[in-house]
């Protein structure tokens, strides 16, 4: 693999990797803490609080069961899935054609459109003018559209996708046009099949955004039946009306802290499940590392 030439190289690697180990622990410990809290059985919690380490055999999943048995949690999860799936679909349907058009160098008006989009990226007028549009003009209070549509296109995502499309050799598009395909057909039948990695990456970025979004639901949704997971999680964590969301004193199988930790875990798990997929794509190319020598 490599040669440890001398003592200097050894001590250098020791320092560098020691530092990385410290960083690793700093990231892992808060996550570890919430995992341990969520699986601590009630009697252990009453005796010693949350132990730093417990064998998997001693774990209790009572908090998870209790969380999922209350109707609020599955419903919020369903709302989150709806928002994420619809939001990602809408975002991609708007982002792909825009990025494709902007990647066509010969398109008259390309500069004007790019400037028009960049301007909105650089200049924000704040929350209230958008709120007036969505809540008053469109009347989307208690309407999922208010969560899905207004943030649907991200400028950076458009630019990243445009750069990818620009990297596809012009000859491929020209060859298709020679055969009589129009721009729409070129996009659907030539460009998109070549663009799976970027569609997946950008799609996952959008999905992560929608899954995590909690502010616009608080802003536009009053009906608690429409509440997505992050809002429910916030209410559970801040816990002014904890018993509204979890019937914790009915059976007492888990401590309140375990229930809160279980709620964090349940909101986090889908993210962690898709994470390896996202990660595989954004470390591709120059970032794979270890390229030199």
């Amino acid at each position: 693999m490599f040669r440890m030439k001398d003592r200097d190289e050894w001590s250098f690697q020791l320092v560098v990797n020691g530092l990385l180990l410290v960083v690793l622990l700093i990231i892992v410990i808060p996550l570890w803490r919430v995992i341990m809290t969520s699986v601590t059985p009630l009697d252990v919690y009453m005796r010693v609080g949350v132990p730093f380490f417990q064998w998997p055999g001693d774990w209790s999943f009572g908090a998870f069961q209790q969380m999922l048995s209350h109707p609020d949690f599955p419903r919020a999860a369903l709302n989150s899935v709806i928002i994420t799936v619809c939001g990602t679909a809408v975002s991609l349907t708007l982002t792909v054609p825009l990025a494709y058009a902007l990647s066509t160098r010969t398109l008259p008006g390309r500069t004007v459109i790019t400037a028009m989009i960049l301007f909105t990226f650089l200049f924000h007028v704040g929350l209230i003018p958008t709120y007036l549009l969505v809540a008053k003009t469109l009347g989307w209070i208690d309407n999922m559209l208010a969560i899905i549509i207004p943030p649907a296109v991200g400028v950076t995502n458009v630019l990243v996708m445009r750069n990818f499309f620009e990297g596809i050799p012009d000859e491929i598009k020209e060859a298709a046009r020679m055969d009589g395909a129009n721009d729409l057909q070129v996009l659907l039948q030539v460009i998109l099949p070549l663009s799976k990695p970027i569609l997946l990456t950008i799609g996952l970025f959008y999905a992560v955004y929608y899954w995590n979004e909690f502010f616009t639901p608080i802003l536009y949704l009053n009906d608690s039946d429409l509440m997505p997971l992050p809002v429910l999680l916030r209410n559970i964590l801040i816990g002014q009306n904890f018993s509204e969301y979890v019937e914790y004193d009915v059976s007492r199988v888990a401590s309140i802290e375990s229930l809160k930790a279980a709620a964090v875990m349940l909101t986090m798990v889908p993210m962690i499940a898709v994470y390896p997929w996202i990660q595989r794509y954004f470390t591709k190319g120059t970032l794979v590392g270890g390229v030199k020598e």
Partner: peptide, 16 residues
């Protein structure tokens, strides 16, 4: 591991 927290929402961060 160090890229992961970037994808967590601030509500989850509050929990942590």
């Amino acid at each position: 591991v160090t890229y992961l927290p970037h994808f967590l929402s601030w509500v989850i961060m509050l929990g942590l």
